[in-house]
Design a protein around this nucleic acid. Structure first.
Lengths: 123, 123
DNA sequence: TTTATATTTAACTAATTGGTTAATTAACCG
DNA sequence: CGGTTAATTAACCAATTAGTTAAATATAAA
């Protein structure tokens, strides 16, 4: 995986991993704590791998406590992703203006669909 | 790809596709318009595929205009992802509190690292 | 030292992804 | 019609991903 942002989004593109983050948002948990809800669906090595993906993306940190590996959520990494999204906020908040504009073009053109209406020539 | 949110994050986990969204944030563009900056790095069919990924994730919509396929950004899909992130905002905004708490535990335990300190037994 | 618990690593596999080239479809233009 | 531009589809391939089972490592406890 090339850049950091791609790595973060890729890590988030899996429901198991998002559920793990949700669990960690309630507080620190060991690998087996985190694993418990998923052990009907997958084995422990699969869990380890998911956690590794989250760790490499910087979304969690793993420490050592005897034979346990307590994991914690790391908000910072999520912030980078959130910051990227922020630039598009206007595109989902403008919905009313956009709908308005759209309706205007529709009623204006009426779009008969089989006609030549010579738009957008070459450049 | 299972759920919608995973599909959206997966679509965002690629710098080419994010660049395409950036381009579309400046306004509608045809496939070849969008392709232009990438044609040194990849071929047109690759572009088509990337656009298909974005389209399936609902991030863009493609229409028909003569032999062109104008694409537009669809803010809605980004909103679902942004809404998901929103629940974690507290984890990157609390940084000061968290640092404070962390420093407190560090100074309290002093952590000599070779010692038995019998924490976290079974349950 | 043996045993038990927690977690990881290794080796393998099936499915998906991101790209390619070559051929095909769609729509316009002279 | 025949040619040109725009875009997609098909067939293929290499790399990555998400899972598996079996073996290994780390730490504590008896």
């Amino acid at each position: 995986m090339q850049d950091h942002l791609s790595q973060t989004f890729a890590a988030l593109a899996d429901p198991t991993r998002r559920a793990m983050l949700a669990r960690l948002s309630q507080g620190e948990a060991s690998v087996s704590d985190i694993a418990k809800p998923f052990l009907k669906e997958m084995t422990l090595p699969a869990i380890t791998k998911h956690l590794k993906v989250l760790e490499k993306a910087g979304l969690i940190t793993k420490t050592r406590e005897a034979q346990w590996r307590p994991c914690r959520l790391n908000g910072e990494a999520l912030k980078t992703a959130a910051d990227w999204m922020e630039q598009y906020r206007v595109f989902w908040e403008e919905s009313l203006d956009r709908l308005d504009a759209y309706l205007k073009t529709v009623t204006a053109k009426k779009k008969p669909k089989g006609k030549t209406h010579g738009r957008k020539r070459k450049k």
